[in-house]
Amino acid sequence: MKRLSALSTSLALLGVTVAFAQDDPLPEGFETQPLIKTSVSRDDDPIVYPTGKPEVISVVGTLAKDGRTALHKHPVPVYVYVLEGEIELRTEGKEPHRYKAGEAFIETQNRKHQAFNVAGTPSKILAVFIGEQGKPTTVAAQ
């Protein structure tokens, strides 16, 4: 294996791309559980990618018991996965929707919304922003 790694490194230095083929796309002992595959947000709006130099930012957010986010909007696509608890999303012009631990969604772009913790304990989310360097991922609603 070391010999193969050294060969790969040498070829890479020469500008040669090396790829290793597998019979199966997932190696033995590795399983996946699909969460979401979509081209629209949770409100059926098309996902629009930013222009310029891309930047991916991920955060884990915790909403305290009975907590909420500020009223805000996102100019970039945002993937959200509920790690713990349950949240309710209230979006301008839409019916509220609840998401429990283990559920994922694509946040609505450029529309005012707010998340509320509806669990009896703190709720945690993973948010992944597909943004642009130097540009905000979240904007306070006015």
Score class of each variant (00 low, 15 high):
residue 27 P to L: 12
residue 98 R to C: 05
residue 31 E to R: 04
residue 53 K to Y: 05
residue 116 F to S: 00
residue 108 T to M: 00
residue 10 S to W: 11
residue 116 F to T: 05
residue 110 N to I: 08
residue 58 S to V: 01
residue 49 Y to G: 07
residue 65 K to Y: 06
residue 50 P to S: 12
residue 79 Y to S: 04
residue 34 P to A: 04
residue 93 G to E: 07
residue 6 A to Q: 07
residue 76 V to M: 06
residue 15 G to M: 01
residue 23 D to F: 11
residue 11 L to H: 04
residue 99 Y to D: 01
residue 9 T to M: 14
residue 112 K to R: 15
residue 38 T to N: 06
residue 31 E to G: 12
residue 42 R to L: 15
residue 81 Y to N: 10
residue 18 V to F: 08
residue 29 G to Q: 01
residue 84 E to M: 02
residue 85 G to N: 00
residue 12 A to V: 07
residue 115 A to T: 03
residue 111 R to A: 05
residue 64 A to M: 12
residue 36 I to N: 01
residue 118 V to W: 01
residue 36 I to E: 04
residue 109 Q to R: 13
residue 107 E to V: 15
residue 70 A to R: 14
residue 108 T to E: 02
residue 40 V to I: 10
residue 44 D to M: 09
residue 20 F to H: 11
residue 68 R to A: 06
residue 7 L to I: 12
residue 40 V to R: 08
residue 78 V to Y: 02
residue 60 V to T: 10
residue 84 E to F: 02
residue 31 E to V: 11
residue 22 Q to W: 03
residue 55 E to C: 09
residue 77 P to E: 04
residue 103 E to R: 04
residue 20 F to R: 15
residue 102 G to V: 11
residue 109 Q to S: 04
residue 21 A to Q: 06
residue 77 P to H: 07
residue 19 A to C: 13
residue 97 H to A: 11
residue 69 T to F: 03
residue 10 S to Y: 11
residue 3 R to K: 08
residue 20 F to N: 09
residue 109 Q to N: 04
residue 4 L to G: 05
residue 18 V to R: 08
residue 48 V to F: 12
residue 95 E to M: 10
residue 14 L to T: 12
residue 113 H to I: 05
residue 14 L to Q: 14
residue 106 I to K: 00
residue 116 F to K: 00
residue 22 Q to R: 15
residue 91 T to F: 07
residue 85 G to E: 00
residue 49 Y to V: 07
residue 113 H to Y: 08
residue 93 G to P: 02
residue 118 V to D: 03
residue 56 V to F: 11
residue 113 H to G: 04
residue 97 H to L: 09
residue 95 E to G: 05
residue 46 P to W: 04
residue 117 N to A: 11
residue 85 G to C: 01
residue 42 R to M: 15
residue 25 P to H: 09
residue 61 G to V: 12
residue 13 L to V: 01
residue 81 Y to T: 09
residue 73 K to H: 14
residue 48 V to T: 10
residue 25 P to L: 12
residue 82 V to N: 01
residue 106 I to N: 02
residue 43 D to Y: 09
residue 99 Y to F: 15
residue 58 S to D: 00
residue 36 I to M: 12
residue 35 L to F: 07
residue 119 A to R: 05
residue 4 L to K: 14
residue 92 E to M: 05
residue 60 V to W: 10
residue 92 E to I: 05
residue 34 P to R: 03
residue 45 D to I: 10
residue 58 S to H: 10
residue 100 K to F: 10
residue 25 P to M: 08
residue 29 G to N: 04
residue 45 D to L: 12
residue 88 E to F: 00
residue 32 T to L: 13
residue 66 D to N: 12
